[in-house]
Write a protein that binds this DNA or RNA. Structure first.
Length: 482
RNA sequence: GGCCCCGUCGUCUAGAGGCCUAGGACGCCGCCCUCUCAAGGCGGUAGCGUGGGUUCAAAUCCCAUCGGGGCUACCA
């Protein structure tokens, strides 16, 4: 049987990095094994789920390139992949379970349950609810008929235990004394996660459930339910959780967790995938950088780490730089021109674009996050008449400032041809002539043309700027000095 | 509290009794390159939570302990 896996987020929040990693592992496993990757919406929480979240999840999964074979938006042979469309099916299963004695209507109130658990705990017994607060079977029909509200609980076999082999955790055993008779149908008739998720996994022939470790202790419930339905339990693989720098479960208070935030910050999907894959899995051969295809080729669920992993933005950022440097210039231009236009406040003309293209090889290797290109390329497209305060005091308003600027004007005024090489030669000769160090002599020129002490390489920048504009800026700065 | 999971450099990890005076990557530090900033090259810093065992030999096996995390909802 070819593997069938699913990523089943509930739309109660934006796609966050931890969920994205779960999706990625499902995707890698499916592609590696020639299986099917299914995207489902576990949207049984009507109070918290929204269409906006749902859309965000789809959009960012697409952005990451984790294409699914069946499910949301594209459909598939098994009907709807949205649980809210399948309530009738879940009710049918619940009803069937009741009829067969695997589930029962429960009238116990929250207060009664609290008391039950408190007493059990005080008596040193297991606090798991076992249905002992329920009325005799004979009364149930009457109370239901009288309109009394009830939930449906699954009847956990007692005594007993559920054992299973988790692909990443190893052999697991849960004593039923620790497992509540859990609710499968709420009093309003809607299914809970446990029911809906399990029914879907059975109905859609899911072979491997790859999900977060937070669901590990719910697994006995899912296996028990599956068996009661007459299905074969899937193989389970529980991934450790992602942590914040403080070792606590990754959450908003640790900073950005929404994938959208990383996309906006200028991260590349390739870098995101690569980094996320490394959180709990290693490519092998001491390798750190790998394309999606390479990862698909090497991915094994059995080599996934059991340790929780701390999400480290620093390493992600470094990796993003690696991927940016690997982009070809055309790609880089395509994604960064809008960012530059944004910073400059106007649309780039064809001529602007041509000049930007010349600068790209220089800025590309200097950026880790896409939006950084704006500050590097900005000088090409705006007038420089304001200078960074520190730059002005440190390199301009000093003895060497005017000397260097005067020298540059003299050296460049009649330079022919206007090329990086010629500029290089002329300016270095000027250095010698005026007895300036490279640093003291070149920095004022840099500040004059860019307004800042940091810019792409000077000679290239001068060439791309053009003689007239370059000289105008140098003269303007010189004038401002006197 | 109960049940469950986890514990190798600050972080992600390699390591499945001798190959480990513990390897790689990020970070950090230094040097080189150099017109600034990057990139790149070279080098360095730093770790087997603790205590007992088992063994000729333990990061690797066992026990205990400590620490962290998850679950314990009519959330998922």
């Amino acid at each position: 049987m070819t593997p069938r896996v699913r990523f089943a987020p509930s739309p109660t929040g934006y796609l966050h990095v931890g969920a994205a990693r779960t999706a990625l592992y499902n995707y890698l496993f499916a592609r590696h094994s020639g299986g099917t990757f299914i995207l489902r919406s576990d949207d049984t929480d009507e109070a918290r789920g929204t269409d906006e979240f749902q859309e965000d999840i789809l959009e960012h999964l697409r952005w990451l390139g984790l294409e699914w074979d069946e499910g949301l938006a594209i459909g598939g042979p098994l009907g709807s992949y949205r649980q809210s469309d399948r309530y009738d099916r879940y009710r049918e299963v619940a009803q069937d379970l009741v009829e067969r004695g695997s589930a029962y209507y429960s009238f116990a109130t929250a207060e009664q349950l609290d008391a039950f658990k408190r007493e059990a705990r005080e008596a040193g017994a297991s606090p798991a609810y076992d249905g002992s607060l329920e009325p005799p079977a004979a009364e149930v029909a009457d109370r239901l008929a009288a309109g009394e509200k009830a939930v449906v609980r699954f009847k956990v076999p007692r005594p007993g235990a559920t054992e299973f082999a988790d692909v990443v955790r190893g052999d697991m055993r849960f004593d039923h004394a620790q497992v509540d008779d859990f609710i499968i149908l709420r009093s309003n008739g809607t299914p809970t996660y446990h029911l809906a998720s399990t029914v879907d996994d059975v109905d859609y022939d899911i072979t491997h459930v790859i999900r977060g470790e937070d669901l590990l202790s719910s697994t006995p419930k899912h296996i028990l339910l599956t068996q009661a339905m007459g299905g074969d339990p899937a193989t389970y693989a529980h991934l450790s959780l992602l942590m914040g720098p403080d070792g606590k479960k990754l959450s908003k208070r640790h900073g950005d967790t929404a994938m959208a935030a990383y996309r906006e910050a200028g991260y590349l999907p390739e870098a995101m995938n690569n980094y996320l894959a490394l959180l709990g899995w290693n490519i092998g051969d001491d390798e750190t950088i790998a394309s999606l295809d390479e990862m698909i080729d090497r991915f094994e669920l059995t080599t996934v780490s059991r340790n929780p992993a701390v999400f480290d933005p620093k390493k992600l950022e470094w990796m993003n730089g690696v991927y940016i440097r690997e982009m070809n210039d055309d790609e880089f231009i395509a994604v960064t021109v809008p960012l530059v236009e944004d910073a400059v406040g106007r649309t780039l003309s064809d001529e602007d674009r041509a000049r930007y293209a010349l600068l790209v090889p220089l800025v590309k290797e200097r950026t880790k996050l896409l939006p950084e290109v704006a500050s590097q390329a900005r000088f090409l497209f705006v007038d420089i008449d304001e200078y960074d305060e520190k730059a002005w005091s440190k390199v301009m308003a000093v003895d060497e400032g005017p000397i260097a600027l005067d020298g540059a004007i003299a050296a460049l005024e009649n330079l022919d041809p206007w090329t990086t090489e010629a500029i290089d030669t002329a300016l270095r000769a000027m250095l010698e002539e005026r007895e300036l160090s490279a640093r003291k002599g070149f920095q004022p020129i840099r500040v004059a043309i860019s307004g800042s002490m940091v810019s792409p390489p000077l000679f290239e920048s001068l060439e791309i700027l053009g003689r007239d504009e370059a000289l105008a800026r140098i003269r303007r700065a010189r004038a401002a000095l006197s």
